[in-house]
Nucleic acid binder design. Sequence first.
RNA 1: GCCCCCAUCGUCUAGUGGCCUAGGACGUCACCCUUUCAAGGUGAAGAUCGCGGGUUCGAAUCCCGCUGGGGGUACCA
Length: 531
Amino acid sequence: MSLRTNSLTTNVEPQIAVTATRAESARSASRRGTSGKLTTGDDTGSLQTGSYHHKLMTPAPRVRFAPSPTGSLHVGGARTALYNWLFARRHGGTFILRIEDTDVDRNRPELVDQILEAMTWLGLTWDEGPYRQSERYGLYREAATRLLAEGMAYRAFETSEELEAARKAADAAGETFRYSGAGRAIPSEESDRRAAAGEPFVIRLKMPNEPIVVDDLVQGRAEFPAGSLDDFVLMRSDGHPLYHFSVCVDDVAMRITHVVRGVDHLPNTPKHVALFRALGAEAPKFAHLGMILGADGKKLSKRHGAAGAEEFRAQGLLPEALVNFLALLGWSPGEDRERMTVAEMASLFSLERIGPSPSRFDHEKLAWLNGQYLQDVAEPRLLELLRPFGLPEACPEETLLRALPLQKPRAKTLVELAQALAVYGEDPATYDPAGLKKFGKAANAPLLRTFVERISALPSLGHAGVEEVARTLAAESGVKLGDLAQPVRLALTGTLASPPLFEMIEVLGLETTRRRALALAAKIEAEAAPS
RNA sequence: GCCCCCAUCGUCUAGUGGCCUAGGACGUCACCCUUUCAAGGUGAAGAUCGCGGGUUCGAAUCCCGCUGGGGGUACCA
């Protein structure tokens, strides 16, 4: 594609795609179609008192989530997307997805799908888009041309090498580097001539020489002194728009009303405010969210275990749990609410209740929340969710379905649950050493054999019947129930921890129970008999 | 260096001048339940509201300074 910067001096502009392409519309429409469960019922619910007012007084908000495909969907990004989504749902607005892919060097197009998939997994479906900035270059060129013509921006002919050198010099002198604004002084005829002659240039914005105030909905008022910002670059010499520029042009084109993003963008905001002004547009309202830090208070990264949405998925977390957790990181509905459905969150959400401070990512609490959500998943669906994590092949699904109620309360993630299910498929390959030491006594072999004999004689293997057998046998043998139950448990699971033994036996069935109990008895006998 | 932001139990937070002897949740500990492990139930410990000054009859809540943390300072996003 030709990105000849010379085109900036002309006015040949390709048609602009302000609306999604047909394929994209269809795609997002179908996504929306599958996410019916996430609609919030705003129109009929708690909004009743306020909605009339809202609809008359202010237009429905239009918000966007604008990831760049330079990495996967980070939890920080996921939370930003969620807050935008909740805000849109709360006010009957529009949630727009925009891919910021103007950095050709760092872009990894294959990550776009990964991001979309992660958002879909989280249930954060979008109403418009995904727009790709790489497909909207005409729009940026047109805007740049206009700013140039209006004298709001100008060409600058310094090379990056020259600027780099100047930056280093300033650094060495202990001074703050700011672009000199030299390009402002070049007469427009000369500027046009040099551009036409093919001399490379960037386009810079003329920053107003006055302080810029940002009234942030979350962070409050921040005033940036005049002169603290220099004339930043709008268009690179290779014709690519820079982030600040494409963002503002698109926010105007998409009629964005509220910008909800991370505080790392707060220092950029005065630039954007100046740009919106230059573009002749009203700036949207801003809401900057505090950073999400790792448990150690450092910037969250892979080092902290998981940072990307798909990693949490791989860890066996439920999207609804992650969403609930993320919602609470910076926002609180008040009244001590913690566990909420997305619908509840959407009806309670407000930017005013977002706190400004950074927060740490507490995996423990996430795990707890996930465990809570896990309990509510019905067994058949749970089995499907578990499938990608591996189910024991040797075990009929009907058995797994019966095992699930026993194992579910003992697990916090799908990974843990899947692992716990393994015992229903295969006989223990090894025994817990401590368990063997404590319960592998010679006297326990006959106890195991008698237990097997007696439950074999039972007309059916109901847990109540098995328990009665066990209690009777323990009493007869003069031992506590635990002294019988633990060796049996060790035989059946190889460990000393499991769901209630008698219910487990009922699920495992007579054959498996016999085989495993007898195997341990044999092992004990073999070791007890000195050769 | 310069610019900007933040600061309540270990963690997430409630709190917007008197209702705070600072509330809830995770985590921790104890007890109960119990054939083990979880889950669940009950209870406890845990915050001189970062520090220092103001304002006020009264401050976690308002103002100033400091300290600590974070972000930005690109022809990255």
